[in-house]
Design a protein around this nucleic acid. Structure first.
Lengths: 94, 94
DNA sequence: TAGATAATTAGAATATCATCTAAATAAATG
DNA sequence: CATTTATTTAGATGATATTCTAATTATCTA
């Protein structure tokens, strides 16, 4: 859970997730939306990957990234635990 | 939104929020749950305060902290935008 | 008002993070 | 097989973040 929140704590990475919401994109396509260098972008994609927030698949010369909504929903559960006063489940998500 | 996620990206701060979920606590009571120094704890509380994730109220000699569920629900909305494929609202939350 | 208790602020040390350029790897194509 | 294109890895640098101790502020009480 820590890795996930760390990954989400950067505005560029959240922007990447928003882009991917509209459909899968290659690393290069994602880079077009940012002014930072490609290595920097790659670094951010790697952090999102390690946090399992995105999925990566090589397509020939390109690398295609997509959202992993499963993990996003786990994070939502974390928030629900925190906000839903009727939830008496003592949370496993740290 | 950035400040909020930054605040959530630290495990100690998320633990503070979980503690507060069960009821309001003074700074000292919160500190009892951690091994770090009180100034460090105070620093974390300050970050949560600036992110509007907690509310602070002086009670005589003590300072009482409580969850601000309003902001937590805003963060939840951010996730919903990202995960709910039928939500066609182009998000204001960055 | 002096002393005790609760909490925060100041300032410094250390660790982590974001970003860059240069170099390396992987795949496609002439 | 040499070259081009797409992407990542390596290594360095500057900026942020976390944590500590010491000092300060605020409040309560004898």
């Amino acid at each position: 859970m820590n890795e996930t929140f760390k990954a989400l704590s950067d505005a560029n990475r959240r922007q990447i997730l928003r882009l991917l919401r509209q459909g899968d994109l290659t690393a290069g396509e994602i880079a077009e939306h940012f002014s930072m260098s490609k290595p920097s972008l790659s670094h951010h994609l790697n952090i999102l990957k390690q946090a399992h927030l995105v999925l990566r698949e090589r397509k020939g010369q390109h690398v295609l990234y997509s959202l992993n909504t499963t993990v996003l929903q786990e994070v939502m559960s974390w928030f629900l635990e925190l906000t839903d006063e009727y939830n008496r489940d003592e949370g496993a998500l740290k």
